[in-house]
Design a protein around this nucleic acid. Sequence first.
DNA 1: CTGAAAGCGCTTACAG
DNA 2: CTGAAAGCGCTTACAG
Lengths: 329, 329
Amino acid sequence: MATVKDVAREAGVSVGTVSKVLSKDLTVKKALRDRVTKAVEQLGYRPNMSARALRTNKLNILGLVVPDISNPFFAQLAKDIEAEAAKQSHTVMLANSDDDPVVELRQIETLLDQSPRGLIVVGAADQSVPQVTTGVPIISLDRRYGDCRLIAADHGAGSGLVAEHLAGLGHRRIAYISGPQSTEVGRLRKLGFCTQLRKICTGSDAAVLICVEGQFDYDSGEHIAHQLLAVAPDERPTAIAAASDQQAIGALRAARDLGISVPSELSIAGFDNIALAELVEPRLTSVSQRTDEMARLAVRLLLSEHPQATQDTFVETSLCARDSTCKIR
Amino acid sequence: MATVKDVAREAGVSVGTVSKVLSKDLTVKKALRDRVTKAVEQLGYRPNMSARALRTNKLNILGLVVPDISNPFFAQLAKDIEAEAAKQSHTVMLANSDDDPVVELRQIETLLDQSPRGLIVVGAADQSVPQVTTGVPIISLDRRYGDCRLIAADHGAGSGLVAEHLAGLGHRRIAYISGPQSTEVGRLRKLGFCTQLRKICTGSDAAVLICVEGQFDYDSGEHIAHQLLAVAPDERPTAIAAASDQQAIGALRAARDLGISVPSELSIAGFDNIALAELVEPRLTSVSQRTDEMARLAVRLLLSEHPQATQDTFVETSLCARDSTCKIR
DNA sequence: CTGAAAGCGCTTACAG
DNA sequence: CTGAAAGCGCTTACAG
């Protein structure tokens, strides 16, 4: 591999000058600059990042810790982050925390060892207690990590959209399958849903709302929906809102197993608008998070002057009404 | 941050000794070793990876390039790779090629700049022509990159399992939705299917096989299945084998839209056994790739002595028969 | 068995 | 405007 030294020799200048040209220092005269640029190309020179990092203490690297990259939502987030990072000439190191705070901490420490410009952490479900102290900025995305600044969808408002949607379709006996209430997301989505529903359906128009806590996964949704639906038809909820698409898809399956037709007998709505939402039968009504916008914000923030300054940011959500919800008859 | 120097001072030894202890050099006497170890803990010393890399030219990093991390199969692969790499104390840098050879090349170059121990590349669909030359070992996973050693599922044998399965269920009018024949995977899966089917159904028992080429995605499967099924019932295939689960799920949807019941009127099988295969209705018969085994092989190989030596490795697959296929009536 | 010293490839005050 | 030189934090022959 060619080094600055080789380039300097080839161009007939000092290594300092080469370095300056490389860093677009305009105090170097054009004639020299051109000679250096030419030598760089001729030798196929690529700077040694480790050497650069040793001097500057910064590598063009961002670290990303997600609970589970095989979760489609996090995969999408990772994709958008990588794309935005690449745009800004940064590479992404990926780590899975497995939703385990101990693993999470270890992963974060390992990533910090690589001198990244910053870390993006989607916090593990269980509260991660022992925070690292470091000069590297850390922001949390989607799920808060420690007391780091959070960028997330406006979960509460998003859930509110679902409540409005279902209420608007005439549903007044509604079940809400929440996420784990140990998680901030789980709490926010539930709160947003309940608050909005109560706000809309007041007085004599009040809705019957039953909430069941679950995990965010398919199995949990299927299991809980089974319980909710295994009652006399006129006691059954006419609509189920779930805190995640996975849960909602599990609920779809439970309804099918029980011979309950969706949406004519039962409306079901999810949250996250994963790719799958469009592919299940019937297509799932869901709340769309702007993962690209969240990724853009997160990356830009980390590369900006004061990444951790100012407060949390909540990105707007939107409702995608599809075939799994309809007007009550 | 504490450095070797700080540790040396604290332990009352030279930096060379500290370095030796850190690298588990047993020529250092136990007494000194213990003093150093204690100092390391006391100061919370963590080695500067950039400095180490500058000397040794190697970082405990693996690079991974996938066409699209939001593809569930690649996401699973990435997860398994990260897990295996972490086991071996290595971190993973992730990049998406977007299935574009130009982007792929750029991503590979960027990753190589970080002095990784090795690169794992899931090749872009279109042949990537301009290969990089480098001292860093590169192996391709799932889809070949250039002329790098390949680790992949035994696609041909896997498809053969599906052919056997369908033939065994009595199907003799079968459609095969292939992947792009510009890709090695697409070709291998198709070849394996056709060859095995012809081998089993010979002479008067010969099967009618119609092959249609598509992309690996949902839309392609849905679209092609629509065409295949929009004919008189007795001319329709009784079984469709698809080159990917996405295609198969698209085909499921097409069948449903056309009012064709699966599996009683039509058997459908996929390939890859993505998580979703168990979640669609009916549950999808598919071929399972051992992503964990492939990941393990790939990572170990890169960290071994002669990563690029010996030839391609094909990992065994297995058939997961579920509810989307059944005996013909 | 331990330490002193060179050097990996950069960047950055500083001198000229 | 350009160059010489120090130094980032390690590892590794080498000397003792």
